[in-house]
């Protein structure tokens, strides 16, 4: 069975932020909430690298393990989702998450923490697929329509990949092999090589 995964190819990521705005566009995510971010290391220096990060839909998801109200569930193809009706917005999952994925939209002028919000792999939430309620709370449900996350589908250089992990790694591996022989390239060889 497929397991849904993201992969960001740092050799291709140019930090254009299309993934970020595609997400905003698809889900009408409000200002201040970022389900996806691009992180750049060594900005403006040789060795600069960028990768796009969101919820990684962990197989053994720490958020799910720590949630005091057990609002997380995982679909058969490995997408980690949650029920906002149950969520108490405590932020414990933010402690647990290695990627800083959970976001807490402001709900009032006083900045009280709202319900947790995060990347849904474009799979909505537990409400009826494609319903107005689901859309308001979680955004679009592309998976139910047979479509993959828009961030990856719109990536300017096809650096960000999303879909069945096996196929994603095949696409990536093919690229990496093509790059082979380029000593300056940091990719497969450096990741898996002896050194």
């Amino acid at each position: 069975m497929a397991r849904m995964k993201f992969l960001c190819d740092a050799e291709r990521c140019i930090e254009c932020n299309a993934c970020v705005t595609a997400c905003k566009n698809e889900h009408e995510v409000p200002w201040g909430v970022n389900r996806r971010r691009v992180v750049t290391l060594k900005d403006g220096e040789p060795g600069e690298k960028s990768i796009s990060v969101a919820c990684m839909h962990c197989t053994d998801a720490p958020c799910s393990a720590v949630c005091p109200v057990d609002c997380f569930y995982t679909t058969a193809d490995g997408i980690v989702l949650h029920d906002k009706n149950l969520c108490i917005g405590c932020g414990y999952c933010f402690y647990a998450c290695p990627f800083g994925a959970p976001q807490y939209p402001q709900q009032s002028a006083f900045g009280v923490r709202g319900k947790m919000d995060k990347c849904t792999f474009c799979a909505g939430g537990p409400d009826a697929d494609g319903s107005a309620e689901e859309r308001t709370k979680y955004g679009a449900n592309r998976i139910a329509e047979g479509k993959l996350p828009l961030c990856a589908e719109m990536c300017s250089t096809k650096a960000l990949l999303a879909g069945d992990g096996d196929t994603v790694s095949e696409i990536y591996r093919e690229r990496v092999l093509r790059r082979g022989g380029r000593p300056q390239t940091w990719g497969w060889d450096k990741a898996y090589g002896a050194s």
């Binding site: 254009c16 299309a18 595609a22 096809k158």
Partner: peptide, 8 residues
């Protein structure tokens, strides 16, 4: 594909 502007 799109960049940030195209995707918005």
């Amino acid at each position: 594909s799109h960049c940030a502007k195209g995707a918005a």
